[in-house]
Simulated scan of single mutants.
Amino acid sequence: MLWNKNDKYLETPFQKEAELEEAVNEVKEALFGTSRIYLDDKKKIGKIGGTNNLPDGYLIDLTNSQDPKIFVVENDLASHQHLKHIAVQILEFSLSFETSKVKVKNVVKGMLQKRPDQWKKCEEFAKRNGFENVDFLLESIIHKPNSFNALLIIDELGEELETVLISKFKFPVEVITLKKHQNKQGESLYQFEPFLNDVVEDTEKIDISEIDTIVVAAREDGFNNVFLKEHCWYAIRLNASMIPKIKYLATYQVAPISAITYIAEIKSIEQWQDTNKYILYFSKPAEKIKKVVLGKNKGKAPQSPRYSSKNRILNAHSLDNVF
């Protein structure tokens, strides 16, 4: 229940997938932000005689000036689909995408051409960032290596499904949960975390294209026994699409030290046991750095993994300069 003194809103499950799709369209600006473009036309992709699929939409992500991305979107109701079906659907999307990139580009281009405002947004992005035109921008996004990214929007995400999405695919799969609540008058409130919200919070002072480091909080026993002795850090939640960017791990030692003290180069990032978390292995022992202490803003102390850059950390006077 969502409640205030004036009213109460009870959770109202989506009965049909179409209701979820309508909700996504209603909240898309708040859900995706102004630097992403959601295209919800359903157009079949795939090679003639091969795997063909009908994605629910595409999300063009223009937040990173150096590395714009595209996500193939699948909307599903947890109550209607077995997790095996969802996993197979996403796998088939990847196969269709990889075997028909020219078709995907033409499909996306056609959707944009029907939306003058969104076409203009792509045009302006292309002009600012050295892409000749929108056609070349789409070519660069879709035809580069490892260009397939998936986005699953679902009303409820169980730990089992999240673990499957981590363990079964070599490409990034991001997940958003979207719930609806209604009052007696039928007015709706939607509950969700904006897309890559934790990344957005960490890019107030740093451009997303500069991110190459994950900062974790470490207590004394874990710091000494795992970070320094085992040369790794585990049970970390990460955004799948951010993993290729992470080259370093920095440790923030909690009170009484209250500072970032070491940084390690990452050798590999793998699933942690049979969970929905990751383990990060170091390529060599971590290096001690000049302390980056907690600044005036005590809220900057990491409670969960935070994104930053090695260069910013090494040149920072306090955490106020890091995040």
Rank of each mutant, 00 (worst) to 15 (best):
K42G: 06
N149F: 01
S241M: 01
I166S: 01
Y234K: 15
N225L: 13
V199K: 05
I141N: 07
N53P: 00
L138H: 10
I141P: 04
G158N: 14
D207A: 13
D40N: 15
F195S: 05
V134F: 12
K184D: 08
G130S: 15
Q113N: 14
E162W: 05
Y190G: 00
E156S: 14
D76K: 15
P305A: 07
A87Q: 05
L319E: 07
T261G: 04
K120A: 02
I60H: 06
E265D: 12
I208K: 13
A264L: 02
L10V: 04
K277W: 03
V72C: 08
P256E: 08
R312M: 03
I48L: 13
S318P: 03
V215Q: 11
F71K: 01
S96M: 02
L165Y: 09
A150M: 06
T203K: 03
E29F: 00
E210P: 00
L138E: 11
F97W: 15
V215W: 11
K245G: 02
K277F: 05
G49S: 12
L77D: 08
I37Y: 06
E230I: 04
N239V: 00
Q273C: 02
L196N: 12
G33S: 07
V215G: 07
S283A: 12
E174I: 01
Y58K: 01
L95A: 04
F136S: 12
F32R: 06
I211Y: 11
L157S: 10
E201S: 08
S241K: 01
T261V: 09
A235C: 01
V226E: 14
P116A: 06
I90Y: 04
W119E: 14
E193S: 08
K284N: 05
V322M: 09
K127Y: 10
V200D: 13
S209Q: 14
Y234L: 06
G130H: 15
L189V: 13
L54A: 06
I86H: 09
R312L: 07
L137N: 08
K120V: 00
E204S: 07
W119I: 05
M111N: 13
F97R: 11
K290Q: 13
G222D: 12
Q253I: 09
I86F: 05
I257A: 11
T99K: 13
N239A: 04
F32C: 01
I236R: 02
E287Q: 14
Y248V: 03
L95I: 14
K16G: 02
Q89V: 00
E162K: 15
C232D: 08
D212H: 07
G33M: 09
C122H: 09
V88Y: 09
K44W: 00
K121I: 00
C232S: 14
F71N: 01
T261C: 03
D274L: 03
V88S: 13
E156H: 15
L178D: 04
E21A: 15
A235S: 11
Y38I: 03
A126P: 11
F136D: 09
A301W: 04
V254K: 08
N197D: 13
L54T: 12
D207L: 07
K109L: 14
F192W: 03
F171R: 10
A255I: 01
V107R: 11
H317Q: 10
L151Q: 11
